[in-house]
Amino acid sequence: MKQNQFVQLNEKRWQQFEALSVNSAGEEDMPAEFTVLYRQVCNDLATARTRHYSPALIAKLNEFVSTGQSILYQGEGIKIGSLLRLFKQNFFRSLFENRYYLWLSVGAFYGLALLAYFWVRFDPDAVYYFLDVESIKDIEKMYDPAGSVQTKERSSGSTVLMFGVYIYNNIGIAFQMFGGGALFGVGAILPLLFNSFYFGAISAHIVNIGYESTFFSFVVTHGSFELTAIAIAGAAGAKIGFSLLMPKQYSRAYALKTAGSSVLPLIVGAFIMLLIAAVIEAFWSPLDIPNVFKYSAGAVCWFYVLLMFYRGTRYGHN
């Protein structure tokens, strides 16, 4: 069959398909004849190729097929629901899958923080090795029990301001660690260790100068979600980087791809945990209430987070 005959025979069907694909793009339901027409167009493309019809005709049919499949297999778009589902269905499985990375990362994070804590606790001047005087003064001022900035009655405006800072800063750090992890893990591990050391040194310094009650009552509740989420994001980034260093029996490209889809629920989970932490940090932690409430809330949160972390990494479900 000559090309023009083929075109005349099928042209009407192609026009119908084109019209349908314009109408049903982005729709949830598509007319039943769409799939039938799509399969026929696939068939036409195969026929046109084997008969060596002209490149323009093949290109046109190729375009039909690729629009058709992009409509048939369209993504779900971005919805809060689909993010939550990704978290609910896969977060714990992913905790289990990557448990060694997570144990190492959480262990290194809290271990180094403790190390820094004891170092500065026994050698108070050591804090000046890591931090400059200006930022230490700022931190001292923040947690000064007499007129503490953190627990002073805040205006609603400054609460929103701090909420914005926590979102921008903490989640930004987690995402940077995840992305930077692809650089052979360096971009994830360095910030992880740096943050843990910094946190340990500061807490020790605050205890040394005797401001611990304002400091710990402030950080205890949101710290559970925030610190663990940072450690999880670090583990996720490190796994991506290590998949390039040690691809095992796979090609590097395949190892990187598998690592990416394996740790995706972790970063989504870390994102959600940091959102929770930001809400607590902005709206609960600075409340001017007796410390006993804050410590009890903190104990509940720590227990919950650690329990979920243990169950996830140990059994793969909550």
């Binding site: 993504g75 995402f175 940077q176 650089l183 971009g187 991506i240 889809s261 995706l264 970063i267």
Partner: peptide, 13 residues
């Protein structure tokens, strides 16, 4: 959605 999140979160690298 998963593909898109991964490819865009790795922009820092």
């Amino acid at each position: 959605l998963s593909n898109i999140i991964i490819r865009n979160l790795l922009r820092p690298a």
